[in-house]
Simulated scan of single mutants.
Amino acid sequence: MKSRTTGAIALAVTAILMAVTNPGKQSYIEEISWRVKDTSCQKEQLPVGATLACSTIAPLPHGAIEPILDGYSRRRNYIFFSIYTTDFWGLKNRSIGVGRNFFEF
């Protein structure tokens, strides 16, 4: 009986921590602005639309890219984690946000 109670408490604490550390959209926009400019635009073979997008945002500072990407990004909040999707002129990104971190998939 004691192990069930301990397990339930551990599960509850984990769920609360996951809910509290679920990153918001602004954190994702900051992360994706760096990722798009520094990683996605550095790939050699990009679709035509992505090449145009990269040539548009490459000279801009990261702070100027964030409002642009905000309009092309969507968040699905599942309380314990969030799924983020960005489709900016052929530059596509899907990430899961959990524990204040983002993992691309």
Results as ranks from 00 to 15, higher is better:
residue 88 F to N: 00
residue 92 K to I: 15
residue 90 G to D: 04
residue 36 V to A: 10
residue 68 I to M: 06
residue 26 Q to V: 15
residue 53 A to I: 09
residue 95 S to E: 07
residue 64 A to W: 00
residue 69 L to H: 06
residue 41 C to V: 01
residue 84 Y to C: 11
residue 76 R to C: 06
residue 30 E to I: 15
residue 3 S to G: 04
residue 28 Y to L: 14
residue 76 R to F: 02
residue 29 I to C: 10
residue 92 K to P: 12
residue 89 W to M: 14
residue 103 F to S: 14
residue 94 R to I: 04
residue 17 L to M: 13
residue 46 L to G: 09
residue 5 T to A: 10
residue 53 A to E: 03
residue 16 I to T: 07
residue 105 F to P: 05
residue 27 S to R: 13
residue 9 I to A: 01
residue 80 F to I: 05
residue 58 A to C: 02
residue 54 C to I: 14
residue 17 L to R: 09
residue 66 E to P: 05
residue 6 T to I: 11
residue 20 V to F: 03
residue 83 I to G: 06
residue 13 V to R: 06
residue 41 C to W: 05
residue 22 N to I: 06
residue 57 I to D: 00
residue 89 W to L: 14
residue 17 L to N: 12
residue 73 S to C: 07
residue 7 G to N: 06
residue 16 I to M: 02
residue 11 L to N: 00
residue 12 A to P: 08
residue 57 I to V: 15
residue 38 D to G: 09
residue 74 R to K: 14
residue 41 C to N: 02
residue 11 L to V: 01
residue 39 T to L: 10
residue 100 R to F: 09
residue 20 V to D: 04
residue 68 I to A: 04
residue 77 N to W: 06
residue 16 I to G: 00
residue 28 Y to W: 12
residue 55 S to H: 13
residue 48 V to M: 13
residue 83 I to H: 04
residue 19 A to V: 07
residue 77 N to D: 09
residue 46 L to P: 07
residue 97 G to M: 08
residue 102 F to G: 04
residue 60 L to I: 04
residue 55 S to A: 15
residue 81 F to N: 05
residue 99 G to E: 03
residue 31 E to V: 13
residue 65 I to R: 07
residue 39 T to S: 09
residue 11 L to F: 10
residue 71 G to L: 00
residue 54 C to H: 13
residue 48 V to H: 12
residue 77 N to S: 09
residue 64 A to K: 03
residue 100 R to H: 01
residue 104 E to T: 03
residue 96 I to Y: 05
residue 78 Y to K: 15
residue 34 W to F: 12
residue 52 L to K: 11
residue 78 Y to A: 15
residue 85 T to R: 08
residue 95 S to Q: 11
residue 22 N to D: 04
residue 9 I to N: 00
residue 97 G to H: 08
residue 54 C to W: 10
residue 99 G to N: 03
residue 10 A to K: 12
residue 44 E to L: 12
residue 53 A to Y: 02
residue 50 A to P: 08
residue 13 V to K: 04
residue 11 L to I: 07
residue 98 V to M: 13
residue 4 R to M: 07
residue 23 P to W: 01
residue 85 T to W: 03
residue 50 A to S: 12
residue 41 C to M: 00
residue 71 G to E: 00
residue 6 T to P: 00
residue 88 F to Q: 04
residue 17 L to E: 00
residue 83 I to T: 00
residue 65 I to S: 06
residue 62 H to S: 00
